[in-house]
Design a protein around this nucleic acid. Structure first.
Length: 277
DNA sequence: ACCCGTGTTCGCTG
DNA sequence: TCAGCGAACACGGG
């Protein structure tokens, strides 16, 4: 699921569902051992059972959950959703959906379930006081929501590499939270060719791009932030994006050229060859 | 059957 | 030494 907007929504949901709640029982999927490495799923379950969930933070695409164990000692849960991970809420008695890798039974009759078919996500116990010291977190660039996007700093990051600007936008060390969808969407909004290298862009273009990224992520968050629902399963949802996965369709801006799909760094990029010249 | 996928890490190479 | 590249991870859907 996740780029920054989905992870932000996940954080809000976890707060509403579980902040202040006690975890009464933990079960994990034996086939999902890789999710918990280098720790073990057994140790994971033992540490969290009886713990109380205190707060949920987000940096980039990383979820940082602070809990207190039975003796009120702090525990940190570092959670990354990978490509297909999601947290959902179910009542204890509900039938469990497929690919449930973690089940945290709360003291209010509900259970938090971590679903992840492809097992690219990670759930790891860490020192709660020290999330910022985690190598994965320490390596992140500024978070667009918490820190804003400084055009000069963005320019510095994107000009320091020879990778195409679309590829560099996926580098979490330059800016944390942009993924494959919002990279294409932001460059389209800023009318920047995804194939060009940062060095060829002007300061004005970086200012435009910084605003475009912020707007794209904000729109992503707003479109998903709705009234409380226990879980979301949309069967036939419309594609809410302007170019992403719209190759072959007419460009929504110039209405002349079809949107093109190219592959960069093994990922699809979508753009209008006319608007993004 | 085959291709594709909202992410990241690892090992090789020049 | 290190930036950049491609493979790998694993599974479902079109």
């Amino acid at each position: 699921m996740p780029e920054l907007p989905e992870v932000e929504i996940a954080a809000r949901h976890l707060r509403r569902w579980a902040e202040g709640r006690r975890i009464e029982r933990v079960t994990t999927d034996p086939r999902a051992a890789r999710i918990f490495r280098p720790g073990s799923r057994v140790a994971f379950a033992r540490a969290l059972s009886g713990a109380r969930l205190l707060r949920v933070d987000r940096r980039g695409k990383h979820l940082l959950v602070t809990l207190a164990d039975r003796r009120r000692r702090p525990i940190g849960l570092w959670s990354h959703l990978g490509m297909t991970g999601k947290w959902v809420l179910r009542a204890w008695a509900d039938e469990e959906p497929g690919h449930a890798r973690v089940r945290l039974e709360l003291d209010d009759g509900h259970a938090l379930l971590y679903l992840d078919p492809r097992l690219f996500g990670r759930q790891r116990l860490v020192p709660a006081a020290d999330f910022a010291a985690l190598p994965e977190v320490a390596a992140l660039g500024p978070d667009p929501v918490h820190d804003g996007i400084d055009p000069a700093r963005l320019a510095e990051g994107l000009r320091a590499t020879r990778r195409p600007v679309k590829v560099a936008l996926l580098d979490q060390a330059i800016l944390a939270g942009v993924g494959n969808i919002h990279a294409s969407e932001s460059l389209f909004a800023a009318r920047i060719d995804p194939r060009c290298i940062g060095r060829s862009l002007s300061d004005a273009q970086f200012r435009t791009l910084a605003r475009a990224i912020a707007a794209s992520l904000r729109r992503g968050i707003e479109s998903q932030d709705g009234p409380e629902i226990a879980y979301v399963e949309e069967p036939g949802a419309e594609n809410p994006f302007r170019v992403y996965a719209r190759d072959g369709e007419r460009c929504p801006r110039c209405r002349r050229e079809p949107i093109r799909r190219i592959v960069q760094a093994q990922r699809s990029t979508f753009f209008c060859p006319r608007c993004q010249a």
